[in-house]
Deep mutational scan, measured.
Amino acid sequence: MAAGGDHGSPDSYRSPLASRYASPEMCFVFSDRYKFRTWRQLWLWLAEAEQTLGLPITDEQIQEMKSNLENIDFKMAAEEEKRLRHDVMAHVHTFGHCCPKAAGIIHLGATSCYVGDNTDLIILRNALDLLLPKLARVISRLADFAKERASLPTLGFTHFQPAQLTTVGKRCCLWIQDLCMDLQNLKRVRDDLRFRGVKGTTGTQASFLQLFEGDDHKVEQLDKMVTEKAGFKRAFIITGQTYTRKVDIEVLSVLASLGASVHKICTDIRLLANLKEMEEPFEKQQIGSSAMPYKRNPMRSERCCSLARHLMTLVMDPLQTASVQWFERTLDDSANRRICLAEAFLTADTILNTLQNISEGLVVYPKVIERRIRQELPFMATENIIMAMVKAGGSRQDCHEKIRVLSQQAASVVKQEGGDNDLIERIQVDAYFSPIHSQLDHLLDPSSFTGRASQQVQRFLEEEVYPLLKPYESVMKVKAELCL
């Protein structure tokens, strides 16, 4: 049975990233139509530049190519590739079939990587351009969430054990800070992308030097003109047959890092959902379990974690691919890159769409948070109580021993009897502590235990987050809708 299948058929496997999760716009960027249309555009740009620099290419040939950029006979191309065992030459023939007058000058002087690699770089750039505003929107939604809850005390956790208090907004800023680093890295790697350009079979530009009869300047002009037509500021000066596969490492490393950030955020949300302090959106008709109707599973956060793990592992592909590119190139890269580049971007696209949807509907339960604080705060307040007693004339050592005994009794009630923490009640009825009984409410005010959390939130948002989001103001209103 021949390899390949009808990918629109229910009898043929289709990647869930495309069929179930990723956005239509990201799927289109990695589609065959987008790819092969870009090949034709690159052939047109090459012909236009070659004509401008004096090669015998007519206006009629150029116009014929322009008129057929979208006229792609995919069936013919597939048949040609089956016959020739070469995808680029299959599309040269297919393009030439609908451009008979231009057929002889299509791909003039070029090698397969002229269309293959340059198209990949265009796709990487455009895919990054799709991700950047999506990530900015996630940051914006979380920034709104953090600002609104900047002063809401909550129990902090280290080692997932109760620690000092923080605020809900401050905790959210930990998430935002990681995503801001990801946004900066995505922008950097996007701006650092260079075009492969017009380089020939081993990167020496020998074929173009021959076409222009040894004119170095025209060869350099050709490279520059096509690079500018493709919208790049610069091209690699040095290439082998391909652009260095280190570029793929750079791009997928940034995406993998984004995956790590999203995994951490969504894990926190899942843990908070278990504590009943916070939940992701839950639709009115949504079913959490087929057997347990009360369940409210954090399905979206779980999906993000599941896909983020996949995204983090994909960076190993370009690392290994770059390491086995012998001399000017081997074909070890080809099949692998067809999979890992598309999957990385479709996965990143999915987790950003999902995280935006989550961040637009996060639900906080202040009463649950308050109750958990009441359970733990008495123990945390013991040092403040000791200091207040010393100020009232008591002995630190005597007070410490009193607190120690009462704390152990209260802990026994919590752990052995399943009761509430009654340390404060014990202190309130103990005559030894009568000098500070009137101060206990103040000493137990949760806001006095959150330090500068709310001020940190305000400063972080104003100095770091809002300036970073400013270039994306025009796209901030787009909502994230999930079908599944």
Rank of each mutant, 00 (worst) to 15 (best):
H400C: 05
T58A: 04
V115F: 01
E383A: 01
F433V: 04
F30Y: 14
F327I: 11
L352G: 07
S306W: 00
E81A: 00
N68A: 06
Y466V: 14
K264Q: 01
Q455K: 14
G104W: 12
A3W: 15
L121C: 14
M292H: 03
R329F: 01
D248N: 06
V219W: 08
L211T: 10
G116M: 05
W39M: 13
F282T: 06
Q439F: 07
A235K: 06
I249E: 02
Y114C: 05
L55K: 12
Y21Q: 10
K246N: 03
P298K: 01
A102E: 01
S407W: 00
T38I: 14
P293K: 03
H437C: 07
I427T: 10
I238Q: 10
F145L: 06
T244D: 03
F30G: 01
C340I: 14
L443C: 14
T111Q: 03
K66V: 02
L468E: 13
A342V: 01
N384C: 09
G109E: 02
K75P: 07
E283G: 05
Q458C: 10
L443H: 05
N185T: 13
E81I: 04
P281S: 07
Q458Y: 15
D332A: 01
I265T: 11
E463F: 14
G203F: 03
P298D: 09
T313G: 14
S151F: 04
S301P: 06
I287S: 08
V168Q: 05
L444G: 10
V88L: 08
F327T: 12
D333V: 01
I373W: 00
R374P: 07
R171Q: 01
K246L: 03
G393V: 08
G109V: 02
S31F: 02
R270M: 00
G240K: 07
F379T: 05
A3D: 15
I238M: 08
L272G: 15
A90E: 03
E464I: 15
L275A: 12
F232M: 13
M181H: 11
L155Y: 04
D332H: 01
T167E: 01
D32V: 08
E473N: 15
Y34C: 08
I424S: 11
P153F: 06
V262R: 01
L124A: 10
I62C: 05
S448C: 15
C180A: 14
R190Y: 05
D11M: 09
L142S: 11
S301A: 03
P298C: 10
T202W: 01
D333N: 04
E464G: 14
Q210R: 11
R137G: 12
P366E: 12
S395Q: 12
A110R: 01
G214C: 12
C172N: 09
Q61H: 07
M292N: 00
D333A: 01
I373L: 11
R171G: 02
P435V: 11
M312V: 09
P366I: 02
R171C: 02
P467C: 11
S140I: 09
P298N: 01
L311K: 01
A78Y: 08
L307H: 13
G116V: 07
Q325H: 13
G54Y: 04
T204L: 07
L131H: 12
D6T: 10
S306A: 04
A480I: 15
L142M: 09
P153A: 12
S23P: 10
Q416M: 12
F232Y: 10
A49D: 01
L311C: 00
R149I: 07
P446E: 02
L121S: 12
R85M: 08
A146E: 00
Q320V: 10
L484H: 15
N353T: 09
Q325E: 05
L484W: 14
D422S: 15
I238G: 06
L423C: 03
A49Y: 00
R296D: 07
F232E: 00
Y13S: 12
I237F: 07
H97T: 05
G104V: 11
E48R: 08
A90K: 01
S9H: 14
R196M: 09
I339L: 10
Q456A: 11
T204Y: 01
L165K: 07
D332P: 03
F449A: 06
I106V: 13
G231S: 06
H400R: 01
V324P: 02
N384V: 09
F157V: 03
S253P: 01
A47E: 02
M316I: 08
S306D: 01
N384K: 06
L209W: 09
T267V: 06
L423R: 05
I424C: 14
K295A: 03
Q285A: 09
R245P: 01
V324L: 14
F282A: 01
E417S: 08
V115E: 08
H159K: 01
G418C: 00
A410F: 04
S290D: 01
N185P: 13
T354V: 12
N71R: 07
G394F: 12
E343M: 02
E464V: 12
W175S: 11
G418F: 07
S290P: 04
C340T: 12
R296K: 06
V189H: 09
G288Y: 00
W45I: 13
R196K: 11
R40C: 06
E425D: 14
L255I: 04
I427F: 12
A206R: 01
F95N: 05
V363N: 14
I237Q: 13
K75G: 09
G109K: 03
Y13A: 15
A127V: 10
E70F: 14
F212C: 11
E50A: 08
L444T: 10
A47N: 03
A49M: 06
E481G: 15
F36T: 11
L252R: 03
H263L: 04
Q416A: 09
S261A: 14
S19G: 10
R404F: 10
Y466P: 12
V92C: 08
R300S: 15
Q439S: 04
T158W: 03
M316S: 10
T202N: 11
G156L: 01
P318N: 00
I351E: 01
F345H: 08
A381Q: 13
I72D: 11
F208R: 02
E25A: 12
A256F: 01
L258E: 03
C172W: 10
V475T: 13
R14F: 14
P318H: 00
I237R: 11
R125Y: 03
S31N: 15
N421Y: 05
L155C: 03
E80M: 06
A136E: 15
R188D: 11
L155F: 07
F449M: 05
L108I: 13
C173N: 00
F236A: 12
V92A: 11
H93W: 05
P471L: 14
T242M: 06
T244S: 15
S140E: 15
R14Y: 13
R14E: 13
S257W: 09
Y472S: 15
N336Y: 03
M225A: 08
M476Y: 13
A273F: 15
R372S: 03
V88S: 10
Q184L: 08
S289M: 04
M476H: 15
L183G: 07
R296Y: 03
L484T: 15
G259D: 00
V251M: 03
V92Q: 02
Q205D: 07
C266I: 09
H107A: 04
T166V: 01
E60C: 11
I287E: 02
I72F: 05
I122L: 09
T330F: 08
D248F: 07
T227G: 09
A103M: 11
I176N: 06
T382N: 15
T313D: 00
K66P: 04
E148F: 13
F449R: 11
I369D: 04
Q375V: 08
Y13H: 10
Q63W: 06
M380T: 01
